[in-house]
Design a binder for these strands. Structure first.
Length: 216
DNA sequence: CATGGGATTGACT
DNA sequence: GTCAATCCCATGC
């Protein structure tokens, strides 16, 4: 069984280099998708030196009809059935690329949708990519389509390895080892709307709208 | 081969 | 609050 402990490897002074030396444990994604969705809060998504801390996720599983894999193996869904730890990137509403982490054993269609990031590195490049003038920092990655645009993630990244890139997910940093989390129902779906499979960092400005009711 | 429906966003009323 | 933009692909005739 995988744990969240990161492997201590030779350090580097630069933030990117230091994190490059750390990996999520082998088997991290080879677990129930709900566990992975919780544990990804606080981890870091990085692409081309641009990065952010994950503050919102949703879980999807082939056993429920909101999941693309519910219909079985098709051309669209084949990445979902790949080995855990791959990126599933698909186009939403004809416009946006959405990033997911494939979970559970090979042959089981399950993934965690990365819905929002707290910008970490490359904020100016994010602003340039997002294109709109004078965006506040919390508007850069506060939604699943926004964050892929900010990090330059496109459909070409579908099927890529999240340990080796080009899109990578790196372990939690010290400030995020035990994040306060809020559970709620998922956004923007019409089926299985009752499942509480959305996870947000509590009191974080980068969580997408509508924000969940934060724990009292 | 035609059709319809999105795991969304930004602009506008 | 409402609504259009726009592309991939699953489904059905």
């Amino acid at each position: 069984m995988a744990t969240l402990r990161t492997e201590a490897l030779p350090a580097d002074r630069s933030p990117i280099g230091r994190r490059s030396a750390e990996r999520l444990p082998a088997g991290f994604y080879d677990r129930p998708v709900l566990a992975v969705a919780r544990d990804l809060i606080g981890c870091v998504v990085e692409h081309g030196g641009i990065s952010g801390v994950i503050v919102e996720t949703e879980a999807y599983h082939e056993s429920e009809p909101a999941c693309h894999a519910y219909v079985g193996l098709t051309q669209r869904t084949e990445t979902l059935f790949d080995p855990p730890g791959r990126a599933y990137v698909y186009r939403s509403y004809g416009i946006h690329a959405l990033l997911n982490a494939v979970c559970e054993e090979e042959g089981v269609g399950a993934a965690v949708l990365i819905r929002a990031l707290e910008p970490l590195e490359g904020v100016e490049e994010m602003r340039a990519r997002r294109g709109m003038a004078e965006l506040r920092e919390e508007d850069l990655c506060s939604g699943p389509g926004k964050l892929t645009q900010a990090l330059g993630i496109e459909l070409a990244e579908n099927g890529g390895d999240l340990y080796d890139g080009p899109v990578r997910i790196l372990p939690r940093e010290s400030a995020w080892l035990e994040p306060d989390m809020v559970e709620s129902t998922r956004i923007g779906i019409t089926k299985a709307v009752e499942l509480p499979w959305r996870f947000c960092a509590a009191h974080n400005r980068n969580v997408s709208r509508p924000r969940p009711r934060t724990a009292a």
